[in-house]
Design a protein around this nucleic acid. Structure first.
Lengths: 227, 227
DNA sequence: TGCTACGTACTTACACCGTAAGGTCGGTGG
DNA sequence: CCACCGACCTTACGGTGTAAGTACGTAGCA
């Protein structure tokens, strides 16, 4: 009765593939057998489809990995809690970590991506929002984002590529655009695009900032233990 | 006159391959063309050798990657500087970072490895030594190693696998063995094997420790900016 | 000296990978 | 009705890691 696909008898017709189903299946496969087991052929097998059919919903393997990474980040819980900004921040970051721990491949994949997806930016906006609301300066929040990003994700991901082939004006314009949807991240990006010249961040500076933060904290702990 | 290999005319005979030459060439190739360009065939091409010949000196691709990672870590400068432990630590970590920045693929590769090589342990021993000499408790030094490790290498690498199929006694024995060559790391491992029960480290605890260190540091910065 | 054993390098072959190119349906809008 | 289109399949190409088997120069020893 119902419309049959191809040579099927007309009853076991599977529901059509979608980008979401492909990505979800890939995540599932990675969770079960590791990220290396995620190949187009094996993924097709899982979905009862030829490998090449996946390319109608996904541009290529890289696009698939991007989508997987962002989909995982999208599942990070983001309900705010009460309390001062430090408790909020702690809660949010631990939530992110526990999500990533549930997908052991995720941190590695996210780290290999060149630019963050929408969910990732959204998450950064949440974190940035907590810090700005807590009274941290835009500048300090910016540094913190780098430190915490590298803490959670295991690397430091720039919001913009390091490529310097864009002029500051264009970068600033992009940052303004960003602000409409993600005000906190936008504000940070806007500030960075003004001072940094090229809109990028100096990785060396960010690294040293985080390092000094840690060393200073350790000294505090040491002194506290002595006393 | 000299002994010719195979069909060669007798003069252009290349010097024999060694594990070191293979690894060095692989590092060179990765530096120039990225880690993805490092394939057994391409590496063989660079060395004027068939791909399979590499397997005489390297157990497989994984072994090669392990060796590459450890070789890079081995080039981290380790000359101590004068000053208090904080300056020493800062100097050492920044040195490690600048080495890793020179091999952009390295952090990713190290992160994907399952256990650290000798050079990596040696480096950890240097860092641990600075902290212990600086007056940090073994426990605090242990936590710090985790925080700093994940800061430099972009991940948190356990000294032992998480597998709990070894009894505490054996782990402790291994730690004692380790102490002979690497006293500082050994001391930490020994302490961990006593308290942790299974000799492993609780990743969640380590993560929270580092996170709190950072948050506490940020609050300090915030307050300082206000005043 | 001759013979053996071994290490090094080569050849071949296999199963897998990502994906370019093109074919074949069924459903839909003109 | 028909032309189109999107989902799916088929085939094929050049790449990957590596298991297995082979050839050969050298070292050790009789």
């Amino acid at each position: 009765m119902t419309i049959a696909k191809h040579g099927a008898a007309g009853e076991d017709r599977r529901e059509p593939l979608t980008r979401g189903r492909v990505v979800d299946a890939a995540i599932d496969l990675a969770d079960r057998e590791g990220i290396d087991a995620v190949s187009m052929r094996k993924l097709g097998l899982v979905l009862g489809v030829e490998a090449m059919s996946l390319y109608t919903h996904v541009q290529g393997k890289d696009d698939l990995l991007d989508a997987m990474a962002d989909a995982v980040v999208a599942t990070i819980p983001s309900e705010p809690i009460d309390g001062h900004w430090q408790a909020q921040l702690r809660h949010t970051i631990l939530g992110a970590r526990s999500t990533l721990v549930g997908h052991r491949w995720a941190a590695q994949v996210i780290g290999a991506r060149t630019s963050p997806g929408p969910a990732t930016i959204r998450y950064m906006d949440t974190v940035a929002g907590i810090m700005l609301a807590g009274g941290l300066s835009v500048d300090l929040a910016h540094h913190s984002l780098h430190v915490l990003g590298s803490r959670v994700l295991g690397f430091s991901q720039d919001l913009y590529d390091d490529k310097s082939d864009v002029d500051p004006a264009a970068t600033a314009a992009m940052a303004r655009e960003l602000s409409k949807v993600f005000p906190s991240v936008g504000a940070i990006a806007l500030a960075a695009s003004h001072e940094g010249g090229l809109g990028g961040c100096d990785d060396d500076v960010e690294f040293a900032f985080g390092l000094d933060l840690i060393i200073q904290g350790l000294e505090l702990q040491r002194a506290r233990a002595i006393e």
